[in-house]
Design a protein around this nucleic acid. Structure first.
Length: 342
DNA sequence: AATACGGGGTG
DNA sequence: CACCCAGTATT
């Protein structure tokens, strides 16, 4: 079949290109199952450049899965601070304890798939890169490269489109070097077959690319389903204090900023002295929400009242510098920076 | 199948 | 502003 023949040719061109253009990413230097796993979790929905410093930090703080398992969840969350999708940190930590209890890393795609925080993409990436298992890893890069090359018009985030991409990715896979091949496709997506203004002239597989050779398809693929509109959310945080102490809360286990430290949304009772807005409102953008955050300041009449309020909101009384040691989402660090511990 | 889940980069 | 990023878990 001609498609299959083209797939073989594309694989070879890609291999040659990757040998010359692979980035010097630290987890590729002295590959380990742990380092690969860590990189894959860190890079979920996160650009390589953004995840890079966190990989170094984690390798320093938690050099092995055992170190990670023996650390507390709060230590791991603190290390993850600022990166977002904090569930990844708690699942990574949880997984490290499962692996530590088992005494060894999972040794197949199927086994990795059972690990918390590891889905089809991550399991395929780890199994191919770390174990040499012949499974095609399909991430956003691969969806883009494959849908353009094969001219897949169905939305890649729908069932049929995803299946079509998977079929081509499977046909491309180099069974002799699956890890190398998977990384090559992703690298091509990151460096050449970019979301906008792809460098088709530099592309090693443009010869049989449906999109590159048909101007009508430029800027069209990959097709995606329509996204929901971003919701607006007005958020008021109450910064309640007495002398050097404030009240902070750890957010619930589910929802935005799960388990991260922030400020109560419940105002204190009327015998606290209202200070009005402590700082200018902040517009904070998440993928699915546009947050308008307002910060109300209050002075407690005495320490006991502050402690009573903390109890009411299930929070803790602490100093600013104590709060700084807890894991905070970006919005809280913005508050911290603005008030600078006063 | 749809939705929740962060934050930063980019045109 | 809109779209994207080495996606996964939950409903």
């Amino acid at each position: 079949m001609t498609v299959l023949k083209n797939a073989l040719a594309a694989r070879l061109s890609l291999k040659t290109w990757y040998a010359d253009h692979a980035r010097n990413l630290p987890w590729r230097l002295k590959p380990s199952l742990y380092g690969t796993w860590l990189s894959e979790i860190l890079l979920q929905q996160t650009q390589v450049e953004t995840g890079l410093p966190k990989w170094h930090l984690f390798m320093e703080l938690f050099p092995t899965a055992g170190h990670l398992a023996r650390a507390s969840e709060s230590e791991v969350l603190k290390a993850w601070e600022g990166l977002g999708y904090y569930r990844r940190a708690t699942l990574l930590h949880k997984a490290s304890r499962v692996i530590e209890a088992a005494g060894e890393f999972p040794m197949s795609y199927d086994a990795w798939l059972k690990v918390p925080g590891v889905g089809p993409y991550t399991a395929a990436a780890i199994a191919s890169i770390g174990l040499g298992e012949a499974v095609a890893a399909v991430d956003g890069n691969v969806q883009r490269v494959v849908s353009r090359w094969a001219g897949i018009a169905d939305p890649v985030d729908g069932k049929t489109g995803a299946q079509a991409v998977q079929t081509v990715a499977d046909a491309w896979l180099d069974h002799d070097a699956p890890g190398n091949h998977n990384q090559a496709v992703m690298e091509l997506g990151a460096l050449v077959c970019k979301p906008r203004n792809p460098f088709c002239k530099l592309c090693p597989i443009s010869t049989h690319c449906a999109s590159a050779n048909n101007p009508d398809m430029w800027g069209v693929l990959p097709a995606k389903k329509l996204k929901k509109k971003v919701q607006r959310w007005e958020l008021t945080w109450h910064i309640v204090r007495f002398e050097n102490d404030i009240v902070a809360i750890q957010r619930p286990e589910s929802g935005v900023w799960a388990k991260m430290w922030a400020f109560p949304e419940t105002p204190p009772s009327s015998h606290f002295l209202p200070l009005g807005a402590l700082m200018k409102p902040i517009t904070h953008l998440l993928t699915h929400r546009r947050i308008e955050a307002i910060f109300q300041g209050w002075n407690a009449p005495n320490k006991a009242a502050l402690e009573a309020y903390a109890k009411e909101v299930a929070g803790e009384v602490m100093t600013w510098s104590a709060l700084k040691k807890r894991a905070m989402p970006r919005l809280v660090t913005k508050v911290f920076d603005a008030l600078h511990g006063e």
